[in-house]
Design a protein around this nucleic acid. Sequence first.
DNA 1: TACGAGATCCTATCCGTTAGTGTTACGGTC
DNA 2: GACCGTAACACTAACGGATAGGATCTCGTA
Lengths: 196, 196
Amino acid sequence: MTVQQSGRRERKKAATRQKIADTALRLFLERGYDAVGIRDVAAEADVAVTTLFSHFASKEALVFEQDEDFEHRLTRAVTDRAPHEPLIPALRREVLALVRHCTADSAAPIWRMIDASPALRKYDESVRLRHAESLATAIAADPDLTRSETVARTLARFVIDAYSLSREAPDPEAALDEIFPMIEAAWQAAGPPPRT
Amino acid sequence: MTVQQSGRRERKKAATRQKIADTALRLFLERGYDAVGIRDVAAEADVAVTTLFSHFASKEALVFEQDEDFEHRLTRAVTDRAPHEPLIPALRREVLALVRHCTADSAAPIWRMIDASPALRKYDESVRLRHAESLATAIAADPDLTRSETVARTLARFVIDAYSLSREAPDPEAALDEIFPMIEAAWQAAGPPPRT
DNA sequence: TACGAGATCCTATCCGTTAGTGTTACGGTC
DNA sequence: GACCGTAACACTAACGGATAGGATCTCGTA
């Protein structure tokens, strides 16, 4: 059995991964995403190119390190909300938190870089679509929400749109204040559950 | 002055472009998108690789030949609608037409191929985002529609989502029937124009 | 200690894409 | 009809991301 890996190996692996990610981000921000090659990153992190690709699926993935929890946070906003708490406000709260996180001063240079690179924008789009799918699944699975799958998917897309549009807006929080009432109305219109 | 290019040159160029596109699509459908390289397409179309790339910006673009008018059709659905005709039904009509076009039997193998290839899916996503931006601009420019830019952009995204979700749904037209009432409600909620 | 497995490395290569540089053939002009 | 500018195309070579194959090392455990 290969249960209970007791440590050093996993720590080393995690350290390598972290070192690659840190080095990549540093170089990207210093010299620009397009001006830094995979071979540069690997050399500077003192690993082989193949090692780098065993940790990250693509060059773009180096930039989106922490986005695993984005997905979880959104679905948890659905699954972990208080019993009978309405869905939309819960989602709104979470999206607001995510947007604040992205537009914080510390993250700003990264997002400026992403917005400047077509490859990174494309990657971000596909990540968002994946998140929308997870969110749709979570919504469809909630026993309190008796909507069709199409409605669940639609709502999920709308919520991800809200995140994306608001992140790019000059005043993100004001944008959310405009968009979420629209989402709330769409949700109401989507056939309220059978019993009021 | 280089006005009025009168013919042969342009015809030859168009023919070359068409031959490349036709060859590419044929090979892709025959052997699969990933199994056909750019060099294969160029050889089979009897042109140089550089020529191919002077006609098409990328390998993916070979598959999305006719999509220029998608953009125009959507914006025209906004700009060319009858005076004071409500916006949403006009958009709904156009989206329905687009979805029917995509799900027609003739287009089905192409979309099956697109859905099977991550690269093509990504490309399609970015195309949709561009279309959403155009649509948002058209909506924002309409003097009858006095909504904010954020609302225009949001509505445009929602409409593109409707197209995308419905195209992928098992019953596309039924999906549209579910989604568009949601969009209508969102639009109503977005602050109706000052004078009702 | 010795072994199995996972992590890393090295080499070579594929593939999309572009730069650099000619060459042809068309179109407008005299 | 000869002439020149230029658009379209070709050839070669390369760049950069990504992967395959196989060797090597390092750790966990028997």
